[in-house]
Amino acid sequence: MNDPYKMLGVSSSATLDEIKKAYRKLAKSLHPDLNPGNKESEKKFKEVSHAFDLIGTAEARAKFDRGETDDQQRQKYEEHSQRQKQNSFYDSQQSYGRYSSSFGEGFDGEELFSSIFGGGRRRGSSQMKTAGADELYQLEVEFREAALGAEKIITLPNGKKLQVKIPAGVEDGKKLRFKGLGGSGHGNGPAGDAYVQIHIKRLEGFTRKGVDIETEVAVSIFEAITGGEIEVPTIDGVVMMKIPSGVCTGTKLRIKGKGMGQGDSRGNQIVKLKIVLPKNIDPDLAESIKNLQHKFDYNPRNV
């Protein structure tokens, strides 16, 4: 057995306080939890701890100084050795122990580790099985494609081609999900999902109102008064629409089934009329209107 005084680096005349201070100083530098995996410091720590057991209290020290190595002391030494054979707390936590893992709950270590190790990090542990990241892509579609539905093929950054089926009547900003086509998982973890966000391009003259499409169509004063049939653009092409007599600017007419969507669920086109005068008023026209005014004048603010 080594001399405990030497072990602790104190003289045999040192006070108990000095012994304790010396022990603490050594223990701080040798403790296995502060030197994880260092077997040499672990061994020294055991020796230093035992040395302190022998001379750390007045009673134990007196016995040691008297040269007593009685059964009790031997037993104490054996118990001490036995205890030291048990794992340190550090060792107990090296298989993702309960205490250290509770620290990891809710902690996005993966992100941190990715930023530290980047793409060069080696993998291989089944315990590091993590799902791949979701990826978001943007896709611009024509108004007509959004209204009637379409199929588009986009190429992902990794070279994979993705067939995107745009549902008829899709909302602007809608994210379409493609399961398992996102980032690759780590250690056999599942791949993330790819999301394609739809951005609908504007189409001059067409405004979406839910499932309906609103358009504005110009009519002449004659068409407004007498009614008639006019050409109206729709997303399916030009159609003829009947106008009743006596319509005003702002009158709304409905063309059934020319809105967003497909089949029975398809919306309507709302046609808003706007009475437009000729660019240049012919003097004859002005004269004729004046004559008509004498005969048919009315107060439009009091109709």
Binding site: D33, P36, F89, Q93, Y96, S100, G109, F113, R121, M128
Partner: peptide
């Protein structure tokens, strides 16, 4: 101290896993 040790052990475990 215990919290710091738990953190240390967690990171130590994570690093070991990531380089194995």
């Amino acid at each position: 101290i215990l919290h710091l040790l738990d953190q240390l052990n967690f990171f130590h475990w994570k690093i070991k896993q990531s380089i194995l």
